[in-house]
């Protein structure tokens, strides 16, 4: 079990039930998970095991049924949301990287990244400055003025990572971020995530099916039938 610091995320006995009565389905049945700042953990499991539901709960887009979620030193969920403005929570404290980059097609690369600090109230100039610095750190600074459609898949995914990082969130949720990439680019993305996690002390949860990147994780949460099992990168149980 990783050490939980002032950043990072911890969830305890998280459950999510869809429907009611006879038709109720328990997608999560008491999930425990801890991700320390600077750590990248994998979340794997077969289809329908509850990965996406867990990600949606962690991303504060659906409400769990029970359990606790603690982000840094703040309880954000304890049998009910403890944060009034979930939109601001997502904007300031949670970064998202999706299977496809989902960059806003009508904004250039810089503004795609700068949009988040702008939404948070930072001036356009400072937001862009921050975005460009991060793009350079991710080695796509030379494409800062390009439109998303002009980028390769790998470049787009790096821009998406920059967008997830730009507000310095304590946690990043990555939903199969390497799915559309070849092995070389997929491993490059994981390298970047590890580097960024260390550099910005961000806890990163990577949902993946990608066999080639699974061994790169030091810790993996295997989710099956709504419960998690903690393993090391070799598949050995840590519980």
């Amino acid at each position: 079990m990783a050490e939980f610091g002032k950043k990072g995320i911890r969830i305890e006995e998280l459950t999510k039930r869809y429907g009611q009565g006879d038709t109720a389905v328990d997608a999560l049945k008491g999930v425990d998970m801890t991700v320390a700042p600077g750590e990248v953990v994998g979340l794997i499991g077969p289809s329908g095991s509850g990965k996406s539901t867990l990600l949606k709960c962690l991303g504060a887009v659906i409400e769990p049924t029970a359990g606790r979620m603690i982000l840094g030193d703040k309880i954000i969920y304890d049998r009910g949301w403890k944060i009034w403005d979930l939109r601001a929570l997502r904007r300031d404290s949670i970064g998202f990287v999706f299977q496809a980059p989902y960059l806003i097609p009508f904004l250039d690369v810089t503004d795609n990244v700068a949009l988040l600090p702008m939404l948070a109230g930072l001036s356009n100039r400072d937001s862009r400055k921050q975005a460009v610095a991060l793009l350079h750190a991710l080695d796509v600074g030379h494409r800062a003025q390009a439109m998303p459609s002009q980028l390769s898949g790998g470049e787009q995914q790096r821009v998406a990572i920059a967008r997830a990082l730009v507000n310095r969130p304590p946690v990043i949720l990555a939903d199969e971020p390497t799915a559309p990439l070849d092995s070389e680019r997929a491993l490059a993305v994981i390298r970047i995530l590890n580097q960024m996690a260390r550099q910005y002390e961000t806890a990163i949860i990577v949902v993946t099916h990608d066999e080639k990147i699974i061994p790169t994780f030091k810790r993996i949460y295997h989710i099956r039938d709504g419960r998690t099992l903690e393993e090391d990168g070799e598949g050995r149980s840590l519980e």
Binding site: G59, V61, R87, A88, R90, R91, D92, F96, F98, Y102, I104, P105, L115, L116, L119, A120, R163
Partner: peptide
Amino acid sequence: REIAVLKLIGTKNRT
């Protein structure tokens, strides 16, 4: 999809 992403990353409904 873009609107969903915008909402997910914290864009206000009024925006």
